[in-house]
Design a protein around this nucleic acid. Structure first.
Lengths: 209, 209
DNA sequence: CTGCTTATAAGGCAAGCGTCTAATAAGGAG
DNA sequence: CTCCTTATTAGACGCTTGCCTTATAAGCAG
């Protein structure tokens, strides 16, 4: 047969195959994007597929349902974030003050404090309240994050005016979350540099650095 | 005509009128309830009306659309929360430490830290990112909340080891938000009493109380 | 080159949503 | 008591969603 006319309606389009791993990653990425752009309400299975440039049938081929994709996205994001935070801070583990600073910088980097990520995160938080599987991911993330922080400040010599470790970690963790949201709500009101400076300040006060 | 058979399908049900103010309040309350129970995705106009026990047509009679109702709910909630926090803390304004404590207790009371409220709040936060009207409400709330905190600690005598006021307020505000979320995610992991104790601790450290 | 596996697309279906319109009655004004 | 305003209900419409089923072709094994 002659090749079809240039823009004759082809029976199908975009049929290039991709390895399952790549496609799954594509869908996860598209999910994050959708969560950020459209919020929980706008993040439908069909919209995710649209964003990923695949037909809506494909989601079902890789995930049981849209909710399942959401959960996997959450897990993936937690894993990536923890890995990256650790990679940023651990090289300076010998110098707690510097290590914490690197940690803060990483937290407020575009990678993890971009409106995309935090927007997605808030949807996950909501899910965590009513769904056990999401709550489990949240718990695990929280535990590991605190453990990492604790490892960073452990080398500190005990000082009499320092707070009990658990309390200090809990408060620092709260400051991080609080400023994270503040930054999300308006990077004008509290710019990145100020968030990091405030974290440094809090760390100095809490650990008597 | 004879009265209709006991359970003959009445042409209509539940036609008792209510004053517009009451009905609006009903719908706002139902909205909060829905946000908490079903998240952003499940909070549809029809579901809100179902929850409020009115027909789905009524929403349109009082609000231009469901989104508008959501915004009004946000405004209402902000107003109520600020008023209640002020009422809780201001009577003790002469004693900053006690005033702050009362403030913290109020923040973590069932009224404002119940899963209902925080769940709703997170939906509002998400909206604030992409919609100017929600962002304006968020901004105003934030400003007024900080002003209130500042009024509470102003009577403190200046101490050399205290942080600059702006920094201290920003950090305390972050701690509150962070712990609020922490409490939302699991009141098991961080129970109310501990949240309040941590706030007190943070206040002591930040303001050198 | 041939044929099998399976990634991909596309369409159908029931359910739910938001919007709009029309019909009804509640409750105060006269 | 009657009438008029309007709070309230109910139904219709078009659209989108999630799920499922069927058809197609991409790319590897032989």
């Amino acid at each position: 047969m002659a090749s079809p006319a240039p823009d004759a309606p082809p029976t199908t389009r975009r049929r290039r195959r991709a390895s399952p791993l790549v496609r799954r990653a594509d869908l996860v990425a598209a999910t994050v994007n959708c969560l950020a752009r459209l919020g929980a309400k706008g993040t439908t299975g069909r919209e995710i597929c649209r964003q990923a440039g695949v037909s809506h049938g494909l989601l079902r081929h890789y995930f049981r349902n849209p909710d399942n994709l959401l959960l996997e996205t959450y897990e993936q994001l937690c894993e990536d974030m923890l890995a990256q935070l650790e990679a940023a801070a651990m090289p300076y583990a010998a110098e707690p003050r510097e290590a914490l600073h690197r940690y803060f910088v990483a937290v407020f980097s575009d990678d993890w404090a971009g409106p995309d990520i935090i927007g997605a995160w808030m949807v996950f938080w909501q899910q965590a309240r009513s769904r056990a599987d999401f709550a489990a991911v949240s718990d695990s993330f929280n535990l590991r994050q605190r453990a990492l922080l604790e490892r960073l400040v452990t080398p500190l010599p005990p000082r009499e005016d320092a707070l009990p470790m658990v309390d200090a970690i809990a408060l620092l963790s709260a400051v991080l979350d609080g400023l994270w949201i503040e930054y999300y709500l308006s990077d004008q009101r509290t710019p990145r540099e100020r968030c990091i400076a405030l974290c440094d300040l809090a760390a100095r006060r809490l650990f008597a650095l």
